[in-house]
Lab assay of single mutants.
Amino acid sequence: HNLTITQGKLFFHYNPKLCLSEIHKMEEVSGTKGRQERNDIALKTNGDQASCENELLKFSYIRTSFDKILLRWEPYWPPDFRDLLGFMLFYKEAPYQNVTEFDGQDACGSNSWTVVDIDPPLRSNDPKSQNHPGWLMRGLKPWTQYAIFVKTLVTFSDERRTYGAKSDIIYVQTDATNPSVPLDPISVSNSSSQIILKWKPPSDPNGNITHYLVFWERQAEDSELFELDYCLKGLKLPSRTWSPPFESEDSQKHNQSEYEDSAGECCSCPKTDSQILKELEESSFRKTFEDYLHNVVFVPRKTSSGTGAEDPRPSRKRRSLGDVGNVTVAVPTVAAFPNTSSTSVPTSPEEHRPFEKVVNKESLVISGLRHFTGYRIELQACNQDTPEERCSVAAYVSARTMPEAKADDIVGPVTHEIFENNVVHLMWQEPKEPNGLIVLYEVSYRRYGDEELHLCVSRKHFALERGCRLRGLSPGNYSVRIRATSLAGNGSWTEPTYFYVTDYLDVPSNIA
């Protein structure tokens, strides 16, 4: 807008934040220059609390790290170098490059900038070799853009010569660093050979998330399962459950009422301010606690030095998902009996873990797994792929695949051998790939016309006998059925096997 004052003059007093240069501009645009008398524009009460600059400061050096910015700028000295009290560095987070010096300023003089007072450097006698002032900004957020400017702080001049310097606002972004852990990993099994893994992005990506790394490792069953005799009275049979499938998407929606109208769909109840505040506090606490764990609990591995020492970490090797089922080394339970199943799973520490690289999504279907087997899954978020990966501390989750139908069934015939004193040795093959492992066998036998009897055969007993022995049988026709019990439950009964026990007292003698 054009402003013209045809008559009258300007009068400025007691404006401590208004620089004289701005008042002189007002004289020019209003056409009143030359009308004012000496005392109409006070030299001592206008701009006496402001830094009124008329020179431009330029930054000469900028260096960044993930949490620091090192700045240096060209030296500046007023005509009387004693008038320079120091520099004021202003900075704040700036997602967009549209910041002005006066953003967030209120009537009390406060604003949204963080201000650092910096002492002037030592003055050199040689004007050509003056030290460049600077400042190291610490405690910054990774991968965050900051708006920065600097200006001088000078003393009051009796001659009211307006001098000083100020830089333009520059924008500097800190470097990326390792992201925080992925949030809320959930693993479920939808079949006997697959596990579905879902997660949420890290709360602090500290860069642009480029991919996720998912490692999985087959877990050995508890050692007590191999040692305890679950045929003993009072000892509860062990059981394991597989990871249940995901709930429906509708039930997972946030901010939804727990109660549904019987007449149909209901609208979600909005969260109160107290609920939102509580969630923010919980989120802040979780982030602080995660940072504490990362800094205190997890110790970084030592990389190899120039002395030739090897990095103890196993090298990563990509495998196809079809090879995942046989990740671990199978060892027989008892070496003397080769027909026992290889369900003991000690994992070799030198073995390469299978892994998958996930790009542009937060889910993965891990296939080719062994049925009813526990897996430990390790999830890392990465925001750099080359020249070397920059990934987060791992988040861990466990899951067990679903049982395989008929995996616990005894394959092959049940054979028998009759000894003296009416002892019958029953023999059968253990299931080759049971659900988890076989903890015991149930032997059901009966003599024709009598009630059915049951015998429990422990895992250890089966390994020693290759089956079991029935003792003290009365003469007669017998039928026997056997079924295995694994961590997933009972298998199917075998087809009945028949044998006849004679009275050993009636056996004919070869003595003449």
Results as ranks from 00 to 15, higher is better:
T401L: 03
C266P: 03
R286S: 09
F298G: 06
D261M: 13
H294A: 15
N421W: 09
V345T: 06
G476D: 01
S474Y: 13
Y230P: 06
R483D: 00
E389V: 07
L437S: 01
T494R: 02
S341W: 14
R376S: 06
Y498R: 11
L321G: 06
P338I: 11
C267G: 03
E224P: 13
N255M: 13
G264Y: 06
C269A: 08
D222F: 12
G449D: 11
H371F: 14
P403D: 05
V299R: 14
S341V: 13
V345S: 11
M402N: 13
P349R: 14
R483K: 11
T340Y: 12
R376L: 08
L453E: 03
S341P: 08
L455T: 11
V397F: 14
R471C: 11
L487W: 11
N326T: 03
Q275E: 10
E258R: 10
V214F: 09
M402K: 15
K460Q: 09
G308M: 15
L225D: 03
K287C: 12
S262Q: 05
V439I: 09
I511F: 11
C231P: 04
A484V: 07
S367E: 06
T401R: 00
C468W: 12
Y230R: 09
E351F: 04
E465S: 12
E389Y: 11
F372H: 13
E281R: 10
E279T: 12
Y478M: 00
S248R: 11
Q252G: 13
L505S: 10
S367K: 03
D408W: 00
E465M: 10
S320L: 12
Y445S: 04
D273M: 09
M402W: 09
V359C: 13
G491H: 02
V424I: 04
V296C: 15
P508R: 15
V359M: 14
A484G: 10
S344C: 05
K317F: 11
R353D: 15
Q256Y: 13
R390E: 03
L440H: 12
A335H: 10
G472N: 09
T401Q: 00
H254I: 07
T340A: 07
P387L: 09
R353M: 14
D273F: 14
A399C: 11
N421E: 14
V324C: 03
I366H: 01
I438T: 12
E495S: 08
D323A: 09
E290T: 08
S304G: 09
P314V: 03
Q256M: 04
S486A: 07
S257I: 03
T494W: 01
E310N: 10
V457P: 00
E362Y: 14
S262G: 07
G472T: 06
G264V: 10
V480F: 07
V424C: 08
L505E: 11
I366F: 13
Y504S: 12
V480Q: 01
V214K: 00
C267T: 04
I438A: 04
M402G: 04
A335N: 12
W493R: 05
